[in-house]
């Protein structure tokens, strides 16, 4: 019976969906823009007076101009790199630290694991944005610090999920066999545990990236991040919203860019987790 089930093709009906494929294309486009941005833009994003202030969209300024007459299109395009770089860096750090902690806890088990796991629960229950505001107001604000803050806030969340996934792996007999061979903790974590939770780690990475982009954007909107005139999406929204009556383009363009990026990340994650996840039994459909 078990043999039959494993002989049956496992990924029946598991192809990338249309939305998933579209999201992947969109993400690829964002990455391309982030890399090639400086060669694509018609104006220097910081150049004041590229046009008149608050110009509506035109062939010259596809998204219009802002209060200083800067080209909004150029600023949004150039801002892509920072949005992606800070989001990925913060998430990457959080996932590396969180995965290491989660795997170690699952392997360690016992009292240490129980206590640290409860501490993580407490950390997770604190509202992240408020904690982030607290941290940047104490330590000052620059992009590196924002990335570090977001990473520190996300790491416990990643650790919790990875620990839960690894707890089902550590009880498997191949881990016991490794323990009996006298393998070091590092070897057990890297060779036996990590490959079996790799899917969870990947999904966690992509989900958190979406959150990180929004969170870094929010901090930047609140004035914690790069100083003006850096073309950062959150900062642009902040600068533009006071004059939204004059022109809504300086606000709409970075908002739409951020929304599109996060949606693309989320849809892509959904599809990937569906592809690598397990589907339940299918009832007769005739």
């Amino acid at each position: 019976m078990t043999l039959l089930l494993s002989a049956a093709p496992r990924n029946i009906g598991r192809r990338p969906s249309l939305t998933g494929g579209f999201a992947a294309l969109l993400l690829a486009a964002f990455f391309a823009i982030a890399i090639a941005g400086p060669w694509l833009v018609p104006f220097d994003p910081a150049a004041i007076g590229a046009g008149m202030p608050f110009e509506p969209p035109s062939w010259q300024h596809p998204f219009g101009t802002d209060n200083f007459g800067r080209d909004v299109f150029s600023r949004v395009v150039i801002g892509t790199r920072q949005a992606l770089a800070t989001g990925l860096a913060a998430t990457g750090l959080a996932v590396i630290v969180g995965t290491a902690l989660g795997l170690w806890l699952a392997h360690r088990r016992g009292i240490v694991d129980e206590i640290v796991a409860r501490i993580l629960d407490v950390l997770i229950s604190m509202p992240p944005l408020i904690m982030a505001l607290l941290a940047v107001s104490v330590f000052g604000s620059n992009p590196a610090l924002v990335v570090l803050t977001v990473a520190v806030l996300f790491a416990p969340r990643v650790a919790r999920v990875v620990r839960a996934a690894a707890l089902t792996v550590v009880t498997e007999d191949y881990v016991t066999a490794a323990l009996l061979r006298g393998e070091t903790t590092l070897a057990i974590v890297l060779r036996e545990l990590l490959p079996n939770v790799a899917g969870t780690v990947f999904v966690e990475f992509s989900i958190r990236t979406g959150y990180a982009i929004v969170m870094i954007g929010s901090l930047s909107f609140l004035g914690f991040g790069s100083p003006p005139p850096t073309p950062e999406w959150g900062l642009m929204i902040n600068e533009g919203y006071a004059a939204v009556n004059a022109s809504f383009w300086p606000v709409l363009a970075p908002t739409a860019a951020m929304a599109l990026l996060v949606i693309a990340v989320n849809l892509f994650t959904d599809d990937v987790s569906r592809l690598i996840g397990h589907s339940g039994p299918v009832e007769a459909r005739r």
């Binding site: 078990t2 498997e172 007999d173 191949y174 009996l180 061979r181 006298g182 036996e192 490959p195 079996n196």
Partner: peptide, 18 residues
């Protein structure tokens, strides 16, 4: 460790699938 070895009940769980 070398001189005493164990074979487990369920070969699905005793071999790392990766």
């Amino acid at each position: 460790r070398r001189r005493i070895q164990i074979v487990f009940q369920n070969p699905d769980a005793s071999l790392n699938p990766r």
